[in-house]
């Protein structure tokens, strides 16, 4: 690599949209009997993928091969698993396992050496049980039969890996692999997210897909909330000013009568 390429491009951020998370399905009786660990109730896959989904794919995201900038993804599973640290050096960056309980998966993304970046660690709560609306009265954890009928559980988080002032060579590599853009509008169910409980209905009925509408919708929610807060703030400020005036009047009459 020439020294000219080891120059950082200043004032430039380049990011790559990724998703990380898991999909889980309930095992049926036959499958469970086939396992060496019959107490396992679910089969799950935890993965790091590109955000956009390939057309008609059976998985969430993964339209692009991320190995052009990710060298290795390490999934650190619960200690009860045999060799809990799983290094995945080539795509797809995912681990499939069976299990019975939810736990926190540590995901460590190592970038290619050209990036000059250290590995980045993130966490994902492995989700096995179907999403329920908190406070809806439904049991947090429906029985397995019901859960099985509800289909696979998806728990995915969109995020953007931001490279700040990348090296020219790394930038060239990234630019050579533009990410597939997310579809503008909703074509399939959208992935459920706890930050948007209202999306539960929209998340049902098939393999979900991330789309730009989700971003717009969230922006609108945030904007509406901000407007509400500012309106509230104005109201409270008016109250405050009024009360201050009242207090002032009282203090005045206090000092006068003293």
């Amino acid at each position: 690599m020439s020294s000219a390429e080891r120059v950082r491009v200043r004032g430039l951020n380049i990011f790559r949209p990724i998703i990380y998370g898991n999909t889980a399905v309930v095992l049926n009786q036959k499958e469970r009997e086939a396992l060496t660990t019959p107490d396992h109730t679910h089969r799950w896959t935890v993965a790091v993928r590109s955000a956009a989904s390939a057309p008609d794919s059976e998985i969430v995201g993964g339209a692009d091969d991320l190995s052009y900038f990710i060298k290795r993804v390490t999934f650190k599973l619960h200690d009860t698993y045999a060799n809990p640290t799983r290094n995945i050096d080539k795509p797809p960056f995912e681990v499939s396992e069976t299990g019975w309980g939810e736990f926190e998966v540590q995901i460590r993304i190592t970038f290619i050496p050209e990036s000059g970046e250290k590995a980045y660690t993130l966490y994902h709560h492995l989700k096995l049980h179907p999403w329920t609306v908190v406070g809806s009265g439904e049991p947090e954890q429906p029985p397995l039969e019901t859960a099985a009928k509800m289909g696979p559980v998806h728990s995915w988080q969109y995020d953007e890996i931001v490279f700040h002032d990348p090296f020219q060579s790394f930038l060239n590599t990234l630019v050579a692999h533009p990410p597939t853009a997310l579809p503008k509008t909703k074509r399939r169910p959208i992935p459920f997210h706890t930050a948007n409980p209202a999306s539960l209905e929209a998340s049902k009925g098939g393999v979900p897909e991330f789309c730009l509408d989700m971003e717009r919708e969230e922006a609108e929610r945030l904007e509406a909330a901000r407007k509400a807060i500012i309106a509230e703030q104005d109201k409270w400020r008016a109250t405050l000013i009024e009360k201050e005036k009242e207090l002032e009047k009282m203090n005045k009459s206090l000092s006068e009568s003293a």
């Binding site: 995020d159 997210h193 930050a195 991330f210 909330a225």
Partner: peptide, 13 residues
Amino acid sequence: LGISHTRLVMPTK
């Protein structure tokens, strides 16, 4: 207001 202050569905810029 139904907003989580720690998590976003789509944490874009």
